[in-house]
Design a protein around this nucleic acid. Structure first.
Lengths: 203, 203, 203, 203
DNA sequence: GATGAATGAGACTTCATTCAT
DNA sequence: TATGAATGAAGTCTCATTCAT
């Protein structure tokens, strides 16, 4: 009987991969992608440098997987939260709150997505953009629907969606970088109100 | 006894430095800072690698100069445009329009400041943040004044300023990356209206 | 789960370091320190250039280690030989003979210490000087003792010690560079007699 | 009438060359040959880097010329001083005194010949050796003559000559490097007495 | 599978030398 | 002739990736 990958073996492998990713997230949140060597990474993950290559074909594959993972963590969570509501204004609010919550909970993710990684490598920069655009698309969907129901004035919904997302992004990034505003949850309310007014929501 | 540092020679040297910076801007707009070697840079500028070091002490000095330059180009222009108005709403609008105009005119600057450089090198990342924060500060100044005159509702002006700047940033960045929205000038009007409503401007 | 740092592996690493040092000694005996590139060094040691940096943090660390090593090899041997005698004249003779013997046995050491390295790098030039001065100091110690016992005329013992050491140094260096005098052991006797007369030894 | 190198032109050229050499001596006395760039050299000589190459074909030609010059300065002076005496003991003393005098007068020469240059470049290292050997040869000549007249015991005159020169060399070098012995002239007397005893001079 | 030593391409930078002015 | 900007080979060192154990 030949060697067979039992579930347990598979699981073990998978868990080691997870561990490496976990360590990598931590490191990348502190240092830039380019500034982090595989050796340093391996040390953090408590493996040998060679071992890294048993789990990832190269450095880029790792960051790709990390960003991919974050992509799903983030959007799945957002979609799940949105699904709880039917009103599009509520959906909008739920989206942003979900976003903030996940970033507050997982600061490493926030740092990687918003601070460290951008501008490093055109290849996966694309993936970051994808996340941003996906969020804009969701937002635009809401706006389009509200507009079609006459609940919003006649404005370019793409631009509005960008403004909406961009305003949140800016506040989160400043919070990450400089700790201001101190109370992110409160700022979220202010932002929400700002954007709803901006959209021209009828009271 | 030729080749004295006549004015003409000096001028030529200065223009060569400018040319290197120009080439560097172009390269950095395409590739990341870290991903660009001095050799590649030199090739773009049509000089030998060693020549680069006659004009800049090292790679970091170059990017510092570039970002510094952009910092001044951008903020000087904005301040000049703002100075033409006394009304704070007009100032806000002038700021953003100045920003957009300069980015439309100098796409490489926009790409470097907004797309390529962030997240690469903590040293001058700070300078980029400085630019962003300077703009937020200017905006906040306007909002504070408007608020003190009772022309704005009681909101956290820092958060509002971030939202304001962030919304523009997001639209510009998408335009840079994907060409959408196609008509940036028009989008600017939409954005302006959006933000003025968001601020709670009394008609 | 192989390739642990077993004793055998450790030993191998240590021997590799030794091998690099051995190769370096050989190269430095032929070419100057500055004139030897890491690449050339690596070739001689049959390793890749990068491998060098696994064993030494940089070029200077290597030469430091080499000179340090020689410092101890040389002085330890001299002191050991001196210790066999109580009479200071015997000690003097033992010192010089030990010196000659070690240089005859390890010509690369002699070439590096006496021919190649001096005058190159102020940092470890100091270490070479230290060796020379240590030897002069030992010699002076002997002379002072002899003088205090009235066995030497009233002369400046520092100058005499320098003369003593310098005369040996010159003969060894000429032997290294040009093979003259051919019979170094015999020359040693001549030198010894010369210096003892010079010191004014009472028969 | 074609352009002709008048004497005055020639003289001017020659004097510039001298000036460069003078500056180079000064620099080389402080820094090592390898550690000195042509640019630094040119600055010291108050010429442009390119100008250097109008007077010397390359860096090595300069050091060669310097050492050559020193070779003659030194040996001509020594020979001149020796010529004043007929007794070989007097000649020996005159040689060494001449040597010391010139080194005390021209410390840069001493530093270059004895401290900085050795070990740098096999090519002109040879020339330094030549100087040393020439001095040994002169000394040996004296010893041989004394020996043939029965005024010296039967010893290997080459070794004795080396001892003689080596003892002086050592004292001078220590004086240069560390300022000890403080009084070089006095040390010279001690050394002379030491060596005459060493040679076995009959009183 | 796991290890970490080994590899070598490639980055930055210096500097002897050349060359246009 | 004099200048100093320009050149590019060569040096040091890093690090992603491979490979022997």
């Amino acid at each position: 009987m030949a060697y067979r990958q039992t579930d347990r073996v598979k699981e073990k492998l998978e868990s080691k991969k997870k561990e490496i990713i976990r360590a990598a997230r931590e490191v990348f949140a502190e240092q830039s992608y380019q500034g982090t060597s595989i050796k340093a990474l391996a040390q953090k993950a408590k493996i040998a440098t060679g071992t890294f290559y048993l789990y990832f074909s190269n450095k880029e594959a790792l960051i790709n997987m990390i960003v991919d993972e974050m992509f799903h963590e983030l959007l799945d969570h957002i979609k799940k939260e949105r699904a709880k509501f039917t009103d599009n204004y509520d959906k909008l609010q739920a989206s942003m709150e979900a976003c903030l919550n996940i970033f507050m909970r997982e600061k490493t993710m926030a740092k990687i997505l918003l601070v460290q990684v951008p501008g490093v490598n055109n290849a996966f920069n694309a993936k970051l953009i994808e996340i941003e655009n996906e969020l804009i698309k969701l937002t635009k969907g809401d706006l389009d629907e509200l507009k079609s129901r006459g609940m919003l004035p006649e404005e370019d919904t793409l631009v509005c969606a960008m403004a909406f997302v961009g305003s949140f992004r800016q506040v989160i990034i400043n919070w990450l970088r400089e700790g201001k505003p101190e109370n992110l949850a409160e700022a979220c309310d202010t932002l929400m109100a700002y954007n709803l007014r901006g959209l021209g929501k009828q009271k």
